[in-house]
Design a protein around this nucleic acid. Structure first.
Lengths: 161, 161
DNA sequence: TCGATAACTGGTCAATCTGTCCAGCGAACC
DNA sequence: GGTTCGCTGGACAGATTGACCAGTTATCGA
């Protein structure tokens, strides 16, 4: 059971430190934070156990392997059948990075990438090839104004509650 | 300069291994992959240098710290003034996790989170309080059909080139 | 086809870090 | 008052790291 309650100030300092310099170990972190090593270890374990930290996997950049075009596509799903088969179809397409069901009649929002605008057409065709998809509407991302971040949020969560 | 060319099969195996078990070190990885430790070290360094791997920072889950509601909001920006001041405003709001400019007249797409639907209203109000924003349209995410992933993509990139 | 460069192997070394214990202490709680 | 919890500061053996090295393939251009 995730203990819903929050993170404290030390948790945030630890998370920020790890975000800034992921390669440092527990020992070095404890030195920087001026606490005992066991404390850092326990805090980390707790954060992971509670699910606040989902993992430490490598963050991959699609652009660096040739997928420089990002787009968001809204799919209108045929009411019967439900979302699951559509999600299964989407999961077979590597260029679909994530998908959410959203408010509004049977809609799905996906983030997709492609090698070029021409390649984007191919990806879209692959997506809409599924029979359960009634209509698709694509928005091409021109620039990343604000890169994905969560640190400010945990900072706020720690300050407030 | 990023050597645009791709990753090979060993790179992918390494990335997949690190994604599955991030805590293992270089030595253990070399054992699993049946290659010399130096090779793993060199591959990792190259992947990081090329930007394929952006980092190893902790992945945080907003839901675990009380922000269980995710939404996507499209902002129509007043033509004059440009996007930058708006992006600066958005960056001051912790609940705005990312933002992209998208095709269509002066539009911005943001991913935001909130503690509840009621709290979402507060976040939206905070976003639209900025004078440069003409109109906002919100889509609430009901369920995560496909969690964010990039592994299938690097797999495909390795197979094709 | 022949070199030359790059990549990989398998090994060493000292220094460091990890996992796992422990006893003691202060604060919060019942 | 007693108990539980979290933090401290320390200990230990074993494992890992970063830095080397010489020798062996691969790969690629001329």
């Amino acid at each position: 059971m995730p203990v819903t309650v929050g993170v404290d100030e030390l948790d945030v300092r630890l998370i920020e430190l790890l975000a800034a310099e992921p390669r440092i170990g527990v020992l070095e972190a404890s030195r920087r934070l001026k606490v005992a090593r066991g404390t850092v270890q326990a805090r980390l374990d707790r954060l992971v156990a509670r699910g606040v930290i989902k993992g430490f996997g490598p963050e991959l950049d699609p652009a660096a392997i040739g997928y420089g075009v990002t787009a968001f596509i809204t799919l209108e799903i045929r009411q019967s059948g439900g979302h699951d088969p559509v999600a299964a179809h989407l999961s077979t397409i590597p260029e679909v990075l994530e998908a959410y069901t959203i408010t509004g009649g049977g809609d799905l929002l996906c983030r997709i990438v492609a090698r070029s605008n021409a390649d984007l057409q191919r990806v879209i065709d692959e997506i809409v090839s599924y029979e359960g998809i009634v209509r698709a509407s694509t928005l091409i991302a021109l620039a990343e104004q604000l890169p994905y971040r969560t640190l400010p949020l945990v900072g706020k969560a720690a300050r407030h509650g």
